[in-house]
């Protein structure tokens, strides 16, 4: 079991690389990543939508004890970010002074390395927030 199995990583590209999401045709709720059933109304028809990279911090933590995959990055900030348009993402806040993070802080998603499967395995890319 590796979270960075190549097939598993590649199938997440639309969401992780391009912030592609799905808007429910019935109720308009945006699901990110895309899924088969709308959690808001159980609608099954969606239209593709690309998330705005701009947003603000809803809540955050600074992690001092990390999992194996991120243990050399501590301390790092993790946040739930609400993007313009209402979709939410859980992501790190990079390039930030932890003391400067606030609820409501404007951030922007930037393309970053998220994990790597050791020195020889695949590198998984995605987005982190940076102060806007």
């Amino acid at each position: 079991m590796s979270p960075l199995n190549p097939a598993r990583t590649a199938r997440e590209y639309p969401a992780r690389y391009r912030l592609e999401a799905a808007r429910c045709d019935a109720c308009g709720a945006v699901s990110y990543p895309a899924r088969l059933v709308c959690p808001a109304c159980r609608g099954r028809k969606f239209s593709p939508v690309t998330l705005s990279p701009e947003g603000q911090v809803l809540t955050w933590s600074v992690i001092h004890v990390g999992p194996s995959s991120h243990k050399h990055e501590v301390p790092y900030a993790l946040a739930i970010v609400e993007l313009t348009g209402g979709a939410r993402v859980t992501c790190q806040i990079a390039d930030v002074d932890p003391a400067a993070i606030r609820i409501g802080m404007p951030v922007r998603l930037e393309f970053r390395r998220i994990q790597e499967d050791g020195e020889a395995g695949v590198i998984a890319y995605g987005h982190k927030a940076v102060p806007a």
Binding site: P3, E12, P33, L58, T59, W60, S61, I63, V65, G66, P67, S69, H70, E73, Y76, L78, A79, I80, T90, C91, Q92, I103, I114, Q115, A124, G126, K128
Partner: peptide
């Protein structure tokens, strides 16, 4: 696993975000 753990969430961090809120 995909939405929370992949970007580096831990359980203490998720509860910490609840605490912050």
């Amino acid at each position: 696993a995909e939405v929370e753990v992949f970007p580096g969430a831990t359980f203490p961090a998720l509860y910490a975000m609840m605490a912050r809120a």
